[in-house]
Each structure stands twice: as C-alpha cells, then as structure tokens.
Simulated scan of single mutants.
Amino acid sequence: MNKIAYTAFIAFLATILTLLSASALSQSSDEARDDEALDAITWDELAEHDGAESCWKAIYGRVYDVTDFIPVHPTEEEVMLEWCGRDATEGWENKRPGVPHSPRAESRLESLLVGRLVGEDGQPVMRDDAADMGAEVIDADRALSPAEDERLHRAMLGMPLDGHYRGVFTDRGVIQVNITFDLRDGRFDSVDYRHLAYRGVDYLALEEGDEGYPVRVQYEQVAERLEGEPVTRIFALYEPERMVDDVDGYSGATLRGAKVISAIRDGLNRGVYSWP
C-alpha cells in the first residue's frame, strides 16, 4: 500500500513540475512574441533621449519612456536623469544597494514601454544578457586580504579610489553640469562633459560663431587642463582666470568654476561608478 502511495505521490510531483515547466516556456514564448511586436530601438537612438525633455531607459533589453514620470518620482530628479539614454538595468536592480524595485514599480514601468533594444546587427539585446551590462567586473584585487588591499586602505583614509566617476551640478532641479572623469593614482584622466547648459542654452551644441561659444571653449579648457592633475587641482577653479584663457572678449570670470567643482565633488561623493 505504501509503495502504491509513494508511486502516486511521485507521479503527482512529476505532473506539477511538467505543468510549471510548460507554464514557464509558455510565458517565455509570449514574452518573445511581445518583443517581436515592439519597435526596434538602437543604442544610438536610445542615446538621443538622454535628458529631462525626453528620457528613455533600457531595462532588461526593453526601452521605456519615463519622461513624464520624472517629476513624480520619489527621488531627486538627478537620480532619474543619470540613467537617461542608456541601459539602466543596474539602477533598476539597485533601488538601494542590493534592493530591486518593487512589483508595483514594475507594473508602472510596463505602462511606459516603447520598444526593444537591438544591437548593431539588428538583433534584439537579450533580456537576460542586459541584466549583466552594468554589473561590476570582479578582479583579483577582491581576493586580497585587508592588509594587502590598497583600495580598502584608500577608502579607510578617506582618499578617492581609482576608477570612473560621474557627477552633476543642479540648480532648482535643472542639471547644468554633468561631468565624467577617471582617477588614476589620484590624478584626473579622461575628463569630459555629458551635459553643459544654462538658462536653456546647451553649450555642447554651440558651434564657432554662436553667442556663448567662447564659454564652451573655456569649459573645454578646464577639462583639458585638469588632465593629469591631482584631484586637489579643482580648487583652482575658484579663481577660474588661472585655468582658462580670455576668449573673444570673455573674461575668465564668465566661467562658473564653482559649478564644475560641485559636479566633481558630487561624483566623488557618489563613489566609483565603474572600475577600470
């Protein structure tokens, strides 16, 4: 009798597992069909929507237009804007370190779906693969002991770690400066602006001859002249005429050096964005 009951129990489990597998396969198939019906969006097209006026994000290979949601999102605006125009899977899975967004947020997100992300070959970026795009690369340093790990030493002493940083300066909820830079042995490398604007003027879009173009030149000079300098060099920007040339009658004072300082310090406060 026991043998019969055991056999029946095993058969029951096998049936349940079969049904669950079939359900999972069906759901996966349905998602694939749904993705095929979505508009294909390339990385370049995604990158065009990188600001408050139009903010698209890719999460697990799907693209969402979150522009209208930014003003009502519970965090500060710059937190949302940081992910505009790129893959935001890492941010989605880390609402707080190690804590993903809730099912309720996921439901809201689906209403903002506008397309699927495709690569250069036109093939969809797989949703499972996209989850790893922002993942931190694990290297040999992580196996070092506390006595050997230089990163740990620098962090404990309050010294900035080598790596890639991103920082912003905002005023009244509007991003004016968004800067990226690397630190190598505590010195600047690859300093660049992702966003540079004031009172509706996008300085990065200005061309020679446009009003305000000389100011863009000055900001670019700051980026160039920080290259190879120690991180403490940012404080020279409190007297910007020491860092930039007088261009077409624009004095060094035209440059708002404190904004660049604030953006860089914001990046340092946020910590390493990605490891080299």
Rank of each mutant, 00 (worst) to 15 (best):
Y165V: 08
G134I: 04
V272H: 10
W83A: 10
D192S: 15
L161D: 10
L152P: 06
D44K: 15
M126D: 14
P146A: 04
F169C: 02
I138C: 02
I175M: 10
V125T: 03
D202L: 00
A37R: 14
R187E: 13
P74D: 06
V125R: 04
R154N: 14
L196A: 08
L161W: 11
D30N: 07
H73R: 00
W56M: 12
E120V: 15
I41L: 07
H153Q: 14
G98D: 11
V260K: 08
G158H: 05
A58M: 10
H49E: 12
P74K: 10
W275T: 13
D35T: 02
Y250W: 01
A155I: 07
V63G: 14
D68W: 01
R62E: 12
E106D: 14
S262M: 12
H73V: 05
R233V: 03
P276T: 13
P160L: 02
E241H: 05
N269Q: 15
A37V: 01
G119K: 05
G134L: 02
A135E: 14
G257Q: 08
I179S: 14
G51R: 11
P74W: 01
H164T: 06
A236R: 09
G173L: 07
L157A: 15
E211T: 01
H195P: 07
T7G: 13
E82A: 12
G85Q: 06
R116E: 03
R166Q: 12
V222G: 13
A37E: 13
R216I: 01
E150A: 12
G212S: 09
V114N: 05
E150S: 09
A105N: 01
L25T: 09
G158P: 05
D245G: 09
W275C: 03
E241P: 04
A52P: 04
V137H: 11
L20M: 10
R199E: 12
V222T: 13
D128H: 05
E224I: 09
V125W: 07
K3W: 03
F235C: 00
D87T: 10
T170R: 06
D210I: 01
W83V: 10
R86A: 15
D30Y: 02
V191R: 10
E76C: 08
A40I: 06
V137G: 00
K3L: 13
R142G: 07
G257A: 02
G249P: 10
D189R: 06
D65L: 03
S21W: 03
